[in-house]
Design a binder for these strands. Structure first.
Lengths: 189, 189
DNA sequence: TATGAAGATGAGTGACCACTCACACACCGC
DNA sequence: GCGGTGTGTGAGTGGTCACTCATCTTCATA
């Protein structure tokens, strides 16, 4: 009487990992590594905490996976934007800059980035290496596609970091001369 | 037989606060807001945890005080450097840039800054406001003393943010082209 | 020198955290 | 249909966390 299920009921471990890491990115972005309990991540991913620890033996390893995922998404978006030819008047560097500014509008991406920088300065070497790797790959991507180097590259990346920090404290909504001066016109074009 | 103490044995609450906030800056810099137990801060300050909570009713309020202190120190150091006339060939902006680079050599200052940026993007509004205030005051200080504005100011601050992030992940010690390219010659002059 | 205000703490308290373990169910090749 | 492998969890466990409370000591001063 009970019909056999047409599809598999259980997920594969790889599928679960996928969902779990995605949930981890969002959760860690919100409260940081130490501020996010594994129970919360497991609940968001729809699995038990016990299974979370089977898929990732330590919280730290899950955080590393989340950092990797986050930087991969950033890289994909920026590459995509650079190769998009719908704005033919712009250089690849300009397109990537606009794409990055757009990515910062997403609170999860923004906060994950800032949390990653803070975590990278901590003492967990696996985390620091993950951030170095992700950040380095991003820089290399920009350099390779745009051909920028030296001072031009530094200036581009520096502006990106300023935008990130300003967005993190929601500077555009601060009613003060310094905030208007720094956010300037670079936030909306 | 027991001689009366020449000086007061008990500290005033203001003195204790001073020591406590200083200890809090160091501790929070190391592990962030959520990663730092109040017991550890109290121990470093040489007082009981119970008294910590008498001086600051919540951990969050102590963090705000630590952020204030940290930005005040940054401001003092930068102002001092700008007014120092021992390198007469340099502009005020250049002197401030070198002073900031020197400040980043101190791990506590560096990490505190990165932790503050991450914390500012969180949901605790008192913390976010403290970072906005500290950061804004710093920008206004630079602007007032150097007279820089518009693009020049933005570029200066952006470079500072890049240096901060790179120092946070100890980029100068990474053996890769992108790291050498970004750290460039701006780190040692 | 009595008194009250201020400085300071030991000993909790309930909640929460990272992580574990024994066990159950689903799947699949034979 | 059976046995082994992979998917999944309920129910802990020991430790730690932010915060509290009753109580003590030190000090200024009247």
């Amino acid at each position: 009487m009970i019909p056999p299920p047409a599809t598999r009921q259980l997920s594969t471990a790889a599928e679960r990992r996928e969902v779990l890491v995605e949930a981890a990115v969002a959760a860690f972005a919100e409260h940081g590594f130490h501020g996010t309990p594994t129970t919360e991540i497991a609940k968001a991913a729809g699995i038990s905490q016990a299974y979370l620890f089977r898929l990732f033996p330590t919280k730290s390893e899950l955080y590393v996976a989340a950092v990797d995922r986050c930087y991969r998404r950033l890289g994909d978006a920026i590459r995509e934007a650079a190769e998009d030819a719908s704005a033919p008047g712009e250089t690849a560097l300009e397109r990537m800059g606009h794409a990055y500014a757009a990515l910062l509008q997403d609170p999860t991406t923004l906060r994950a980035t800032l949390q990653a920088f803070a975590a990278a300065s901590g003492e967990d070497l696996a985390i620091r290496d993950a951030v170095r790797r992700g950040y380095g790959d991003l820089i290399e991507l920009v350099q390779r596609i745009s051909g920028a180097e030296g001072e031009e590259l530094r200036e581009f990346v520096a502006r990106g970091m300023l935008m990130t920090v300003l967005a993190g404290m929601d500077a555009p909504s601060i009613d003060a001369p310094w905030a208007r001066e720094l956010c300037g016109d670079k936030f909306d074009d």
